[in-house]
Structure formats: structure tokens, C-alpha cells
Design a protein around this nucleic acid. Sequence first.
DNA 1: CAGTGAGCGAGCTTCCGCTTGACTT
Length: 773
Amino acid sequence: MEENLVIVESPAKAKTIEKFLGKDFKVVSCYGHIRDLSKNDFSIDVNNNYKPSYIIPEDKKKIVSELKKLIKKFNMFWLATDEDREGEAIAWHLYEVLQLNSHKVNRIAFHEITKTAVLKALENPRNIDFNLVNAQQARRILDRIVGYELSPVLWKKVKPGLSAGRVQSVAVRLIVEREREILNFKSTSSFKVNAKFNFYDDKNQLQSFKAELNTKFDEKNKTIEFLNKCLKSDFKIDSIVKKPLKKSPPAPFTTSTLQQEASRKLGFSVAQTMTIAQRLYESGKITYMRTDSVNLSNEAINAIKDAVINNFGKNYLQTRQYTTKTKGAQEAHEAIRPTYVNIQEIDGNNQEKKLYELIWKRTLASQMTDAEIEKTTATISLSNTNEKFIAIGEVIKFDGFLKLYYESPDDEDNDNSKIILPALKEGQNLTIEELFAAERFTHYPPRYTEATLVRKLEELGIGRPSTYAPIISTIQQRGYVIKEDRPGTERKYLYFYMKNNKIIEEIKTENTGYEKNKLYPNDIAMVVNDFLIEHFTNILDFNFTANVEKDFDEIAEGKIDWTKMIDKFYKTFHPVVEKTITTTKKSTGERVLGIDPVSKKPVMVKIGRYGPIVQIGDTNDEEKPKFASLPKGLMIETITLEQALNLFTLPRNIGKFEDKDIVVSIGRFGPYIRHNNTFYSLKKGVDDPYSITYERAIEVIAEKREKDKNKYIKKFEEDPELQILNGRWGPYITYKNNNYKIPKNINPAELTYNKCIEIIKSVGEQKKKKKKK
DNA sequence: CAGTGAGCGAGCTTCCGCTTGACTT
């Protein structure tokens, strides 16, 4: 019989802790929750005090049976799961499932994985906190009720397969509402005036600097009027104001801030950041990567201190402890930091190195001095009018943490690069060298990126570090949201400049509205969001989570009974579900666009069985209505009558080639040309099915034919069904509608018939083996 | 692979938070 068994949540943590403890301790991991409500039914008995029925999910059966075997060999058990709601519940589930003897169980917790913290925890065992466990059960059951009652409503009233939930529906709402703000945004323009001034300094050296006018003109004529005044004006420095500024370093990384910075600085997606961080964590290079805490252990702060002094000297050291401002933070772990701060560079792939470097820099910077900046504002007056030019310069007096780390803004375009002004004196006369005015437009609010959506959710206290990445993938998988790039459009703007003491007008063009990796709502998101807001306002409220969190806290403090809280919620929520199912009509987002001038029938857009469609004529009419699907880029919300009618011009017969018709249309996989029963895809952005010419269509056909020539590597007389082809991922064998990979060491052109059959058989067996596993 | 959108009905879909691997096209 061995002595002590410690159970933690993560295997990497188990490995580390085992090193701190003596021979009398074995540390194992339970891999998170081992018990949950069944995925396949509601699993809550609403007539029996909301009694949940828990099961051990398929993927946890193995670990549970291993744990069961293991506990027989030990005498004392230490449940060392995280010290938060979920961690406490995991400890309780372990206790129940493993049927541990209550006299032999100790509940312990540590917020940091350091030797002192672990040893200290062992000296302070306690019992399982059932209030905290109940707070978790309330959270779990509330989420199940909301998710599993709302989703079926959507299946009946909108479309099968959809989903709704406390977190995802709010995330979708944010994106839908932002898109509508953008659609309704009216851009206005004004004229911004800039100038460049010259003067000779004490040493008779020519100096120059740039300045901007303190007013913007909303009319072209006023702008010209002002510019003409400038031509006749004298310029002089009116005043110089110097102001010291301090900039403090940002707090060490949490999951959310790491995701944001990795997105801005390294271009990583939220999911990418998490997988890379996971690898760094598993190889012991960084602390736990799913955390909402900005806290650093004392040991870490000491190590960072040394690292700052070694790298930058004492002048740059300023230790600080950060406190979290995040709503609902549970702070069960430290901030994300290098395990060993003295290691500046790690082995690993490029991405791992980059992410580590980012974490290392941010961690050190957090314990460095403020940056001291001197901001100079010079005001330049005109002799013949009251407007002033303003020149702003910034000089870094002491760089402090900026020596190492600079937090990127969301929008790099708005980052006014620091201007250094020459030494200026009040009363100095200036001559104007350059003068220009450009028409500038107000910009719509920015669309969400993955990272800015995470920040917004965190701000609202919605979602947890472990769920930010999954939320983003869920709302995309359900078809609510799509992440993509969209091209901008050209825009003309007015530009005036001074030349030979005259003002010259010019029309320039610029590209605007180009979007990269932004989250766009689909039509279905708009329809579902409107439906949910109409009938379930409370759940979609941005404060819903914050409100129920207050209740969970009271349950955790033992002030209220969890079943009472759930009962109160269910008694108001469930009747609305029932009422919505029985009394509301199906929601299709239908919008009537106008009348078709040919048939004189109404034209409408709505969500159909297979997606958004335009319909001409009513379903009840004698004559069946005509349908056309909305192609990518057109939305129910914004499509015009003209655009809708245009969709009915397909399929389009554009002429005969080699005695056969060429027909252009749009199918499930996008626009295509059909000729002689062969399909030729049209690439988006290159060819438009509504306007493609006969000549261009023949070109497309010829291109594809040329490509197909290279498609066949080999055919066999023994069996025409067996072929070696060149595919997107290289050469492969195709046989009876199945494709088989060719091993890398084999030259496909030299394959014989028998060798192919051999490959097919061996690959087939491998597939079977995998299925069994 | 490149139709579809009438209507009926069977059987399916779904939540949020803890954890890691196992996945191919």
C-alpha cells in the first residue's frame, strides 16, 4: 500500500507538482470534468427539484477506470483541482465517482505552481465546499435549460440544426448589431488642413516642421476661402506648452489579452494562439494558458527582477502587483508568464518562438519603470484670421518599459507616428512651405475580429478563458458568422494644395473599406437574432450573465439554495418557451422588395429550406412562384429589387460552341459554365456569370481542357475503373469511387496494376484499424 | 457535385466549461 495520491486537472501540472513532492506522493491527472449531463437528453428532472442525472462521457471512461484501479493502492487522497467553481465541482465528482472514504480525503488548492505554494497547500487541507459545488451545478443546469429549450424552438420556428445559448447568442448579437450599425452608417466628409513651416534658428540653420489646423471645414468653399487667406498671411509661433506624460506598462498576459496581442502583433487566430500556448505549457516553458488572473507569484516577481536588472540595469526596475478588473474573474491561476524568466529564447518552431518571445517581453515589461514623455504643443497664429495651426511633438525623456515592449493598437492606421519638433521659441516668425487640404470621411465603427470579440465578451463577463476559442468556432459552424477578407471600394475625394502662391484643386482616389479577417453575420444570424430578441429579451440581454453570476455568488456563499434560484428562473422562462412554440409563426426574415414589372407579382426575399432565396409570386397563386438563391455577397437585409430581378437572368445561354450550347449559371458550388455536359467553375472575382462574354467562356473551357490533360497520369487496360490521377494534394489512385494516397517513396508513373491493387488493400486495412480504435 | 423551394413524417440536431489528443481532406 502506497501513501498519498494527489489528483489534479492537467497532466502537465501533475508532472511539475510531482517533482516538488517527496517519494510518498504520486500525482495524477483527471483531465478536467469526468462527469456531465448526457448530451443526448435533457438530464434534468424538473419535477424533482431539478435533480440532474450525471453520466461519465465516452471519452472519459478510460481515465475513470484507470483512476478506480489506482485508488485501491493508496491510503490518502488529495483533491487538488483548481480553486474555483468548476474546480470544486470536479473535486466533488471525483469524490463521488471514485467513492472515496471521507476520512481519507483532503481538498487542497494552489493558485500558483511553485514549491512553496504546493507545500503550503498540503499543510492546509479542508473539506469539499458544497456551496461552491452547488453554485457550479446551478451554472451547469441553467446553461442546459437555456441551450436545450431554446435550440428546439429555433428548429421549429426557423431552421433545423440551429442552436442558441447564454453565451453564443450574445456573441452573435454583438456581431449582428455591429453590422447593422455599419449598414446604417452615413459617412460625412470634412476638410483637414495641413501645413509645413520653415524658419532659421540661432545658428542660421533652416528648420522645418509640420502642423495641422485646429478646425475642420465642412464645406468646400470655406476651405478654399481659408486657404486663400493663408496665401496672404504672416505666421508666427504664438505659444509653446510643454507637458510631461507618463505611460505605465500593461499588466501581464491573461488568456484574453494574449489572444488580442498575438492577433495584432503576430496575426494568429484565437484558436492558433491557444494551440501554440498549449504546446509551450506542456513542454514546461510557460505557466497555465487558460487564466483570467494578472497575478504573479512572489518567486516569479523575484526572478523577473533579476532578469530586468541583468538586461537593462536597476534604472529600469519597478516591481508592481497588478489586480484584475475583469467582471467575474475567478483567478485560480497565475498570469501567463515564462516558467523560467531567465530563458529569453526557446527551442521550437517559429510560431512557438514568437509567442514565447511575446510572453517573455510582456512579463518583463510589467515589472519595468514607466516611460516618461514630454509632449510639446506649439500654436501658430495667422495675421489675418483667428484659426490656429497646431504642432504636436513628443520626446521620450526616459523610455522605461518601452525599451522592451509596446502594446499595439487595434487600428494601426490611426497610430499617429511620433513627431519630433525642432527647438522652438515663442514669437518666432515662420514662412509657409507647404499647404494642403484633403477631404476626409468619417469611418463606420470597426467590425469585430476574433480577438476584439473576445475582448468585448470578457468586458461583459461572458464566457471563460477555456471557452473563448470554442465560442468563435461554434458561431461559425452553425452558419451564423463567417470570418473573411472583403475588398474595399474606390472613393474620390477633393484635394487642394498650394503651388506658386496659388491654390490648386484636384480630384484624387483612394481605396476604402478593405477588411481583413473580420467577422460577418449571415442572413440566418439576423433572423435568429431578431427572433430571440423578440421572444427572449432577457436571455439576450448583455447583462444576463452578470445578473445570474450574482446569484451564483450568493449560492457559493451559502445565502440561497441553488434549486430555488433555478426554480425561479425556470418558472418564468419555460412558459415563454411553451408560448413561443404554440403561438408564433415560422420566422423567415421575409422582406418584400416590390413588384416584378413583367409578371406584376410581388418580389420577396427570405430564408428558404436551402438558404436565402428571392421569390416572385405568392405560394398560394395558381401559377407556381419562381425562385432563385441569393449568391454570396447579397444579403436579405440590403438586396434591392433590381439586384433581385437580375438573379432570374440565369441560367443564361450564351451561344453555341462545337455545336453544343454554352450555359452559364450558379450552382451549389458557385458560378459555372456548362458545355457538353461538362462543368467549368468560374473563379470569384475573375468572371461574373451575369456578364461573362462568349469569347471569355471559350477561353475558360480551353484552360480547363489544358489542365485536364495533366490530370491523368496512368490508366490500366486490366480495369478501366482504376486510374492514377493528379489531384490538389498530389498524385493519387482512384478506384470504384474511393481515393487512395500513394506512399511518398513511390513514383506514381511507374506503378503497375498489381502494385496499385496492393496499395488499395493496405490503405483499406489501415482505415479499418483506425475505425476500430 | 452543379436539381431543389409540394407535403408528410421519421429521426436527427442543441448548451457551457473543465481537460487533451486524434483527426484528413
